[in-house]
């Protein structure tokens, strides 16, 4: 079946088998391997991408369900060499160790701030419930998201329009 999707701003049409999962479509057909498969059982969140501006687990969605949708993957966050404020916050706060969970964590965190621009620490922990990390103990991940929320006061979390989640000018949250 033919599907047409917009991935990180670029529109693509492919003929796919109905049983192809979105994560395999993104990795194997579109060639964007930043999105990881961790558990493959809808639990770990490593495969999190945005569909229509909201976080979803791409191992639990068929590519045909995403037909017509606007998709953002981890590759779509940075603008050239300029990191997205959430990516920068993860780097500055040591929010990763091995990095396997990181693409999904960052995508979940960007979606969380879209819905909740000023979360408390507890709300960040709950908002990242769907993402597991085997390395960090979560502490620095939570710190990073809170830091990104603070930086977002200058614009990063305030875009709100579906489909452009996270695709804000990467300079918007730059510390002055």
């Amino acid at each position: 079946m033919n599907i047409t999707v917009t991935v990180n701003g670029e529109t693509a049409t492919h003929d796919v088998e109905p049983r192809l999962l979105l994560v395999h479509y993104l990795r194997d057909v579109v060639g964007l391997t930043g999105t990881n498969v961790g558990c493959d059982t809808s639990s770990c969140g490593a495969c999190t991408v945005h569909v229509g501006g909201e976080s979803v687990k791409s191992c639990t969605m068929l590519a045909v369900q995403a037909d017509g949708a606007d998709i953002t993957t981890i590759e779509g966050l940075a603008q050239g060499d300029v990191l997205h404020p959430m990516q920068r916050a993860f780097r500055e706060n040591h929010g990763l160790q091995c990095g396997f969970c990181t693409p999904g964590m960052v995508m979940a965190a960007v979606s969380l701030l879209e819905e909740h621009p000023h979360p408390t620490e507890a709300e960040v922990r709950e908002g990242l419930e769907g993402n597991l990390c085997r390395c960090t103990g979560y502490h620095n991940i939570v710190k990073a998201v809170l830091a990104a929320a603070d930086a977002g006061d200058s614009g990063a979390a305030a875009t709100g329009s579906p489909g452009v989640a996270g695709r804000v000018p990467a300079s918007a949250g730059a510390p002055s």
């Binding site: 969140g45 979803v56 687990k57 639990t60 979940a108 969380l112 769907g130």
Partner: peptide
Amino acid sequence: IGDPQVRHR
């Protein structure tokens, strides 16, 4: 229910 990703779908 579940987590935000589950609740989005």
